[in-house]
């Protein structure tokens, strides 16, 4: 991981010194372990803040919408796909960006680690051998990295950036033998009543903080539907129908655009698996339109293009 960090700093310094970009967006160490935070570097002397490790799960494409300056952005596989989506949706110009591609080694899940140890975690480090060492008050434990991955990273099939101006390292090997939709098929096999119970249970803890929306790079409407008050589409309280409406609509807005970066799930303070909703839509897009979001700059997404062979069995 240290090579990645060094290389990112070196590239960022060069870009800022040459004036190719006005700022570089990357990660710096957070004030808590396992929580790296986004960092905008504008001066070459500040690039040493930048780091890269397995705690960089936040999607940096979120910080690109409607920017006017030239930006260098550190992008792993999912970030790069969201950048493609932004370019397709005219939220940023390709010429404004200098994409520093990072072949991603998958991110670790802070919630999984916290559930495996007792007491406060003070430090988490990673070894070259694929171990994660967790230190805290009076304990030190070691886990296999594969055990503590974020769920979306464990089934990720696009770890290498799809667009980049330069790469930090050689591409990593992509996973090919993963079953991405096992859990979704289980839900599809449920009866209506079971499915309702499953989803009611899924978001029963929701406190309507909208962290999933804010962390999502796709959510950039000037006024979100939850904030509209005339007419008010969704109530603001803890009514179960309002919670349901919020989650349905949030998921639908991501249809055909979601890259399964996991930012929503990572951001949720109460640990709701919000990806269960977007993943179904992702699966449908794959099966009905053979579409994966953010893979190419040329093709239009299925929901804003008409093709005569679009499936229409549901229409009478």
């Amino acid at each position: 991981m240290q090579e990645y960090t060094d290389k990112i700093r070196q590239i960022a310094r060069r870009l800022l010194e040459e004036g190719t970009v006005d700022m570089v967006i990357g990660f710096r160490k957070g004030s808590m372990p396992i929580m790296n935070e986004p960092c905008m570097v504008r001066r070459p002397q500040d690039v040493d803040q930048l780091v890269w490790d397995s705690n960089c799960g936040i999607n940096l494409a979120n910080y690109l919408t409607d920017r006017k300056e030239k930006i260098g952005v550190v992008a792993k596989g999912c970030d790069s796909r969201n950048i493609v989506t932004h370019i397709i949706e005219n939220k940023i110009d390709r010429d404004q960006l200098h994409i520093i591609g990072v072949p991603c080694g998958a991110m670790i899940d802070k919630r999984k680690i916290a559930s495996l140890v007792e007491g406060e975690i003070t430090d988490v480090t990673e070894t070259e051998a694929g171990k994660v060492i967790v230190k805290g008050e009076g304990f030190e434990k070691s886990f296999d990295k594969a055990e503590v991955l974020q769920e979306n990273c464990a089934i990720c099939i696009h770890r290498n950036p799809v667009v980049h101006d330069e790469m930090v390292a050689e591409p990593v090997e992509e996973q090919t033998d993963v079953d991405r939709y096992a859990d979704i098929r289980e839900i599809e096999a449920m009866s209506d009543a079971e499915r309702k119970a499953f989803f009611d249970d899924l978001y029963k803890e929701c406190i309507r903080c909208y962290a999933c929306r804010n962390a999502c790079p796709l959510c950039y409407c000037p006024t979100c539907f939850v904030d509209e008050s005339r007419p008010q589409w969704v109530g603001k309280g803890q009514n179960e129908n309002d919670i349901r409406t919020f989650h349905f609509l949030r998921a639908y807005h991501c249809a055909g655009r979601c890259t399964d970066c996991g930012a929503c799930e990572r951001a949720c303070p109460v640990g709701i698996k919000v990806r269960m909703l977007t993943k179904k839509l992702e699966k449908d897009c794959k099966e009905l339109f053979d579409w994966e979001a953010g893979i190419s700059l040329e093709n239009r997404p299925p929901l804003d293009a008409y093709r005569p062979n679009d499936p229409d069995e549901f229409i009478k």
Binding site: F225, P231, W233, V234, N241, T245, F248, L249, Y252
Partner: peptide
């Protein structure tokens, strides 16, 4: 929009 359908049901 899906919000119309959900609003009607609600």
């Amino acid at each position: 929009s899906p919000k119309f359908a959900l609003a009607a049901l609600r």
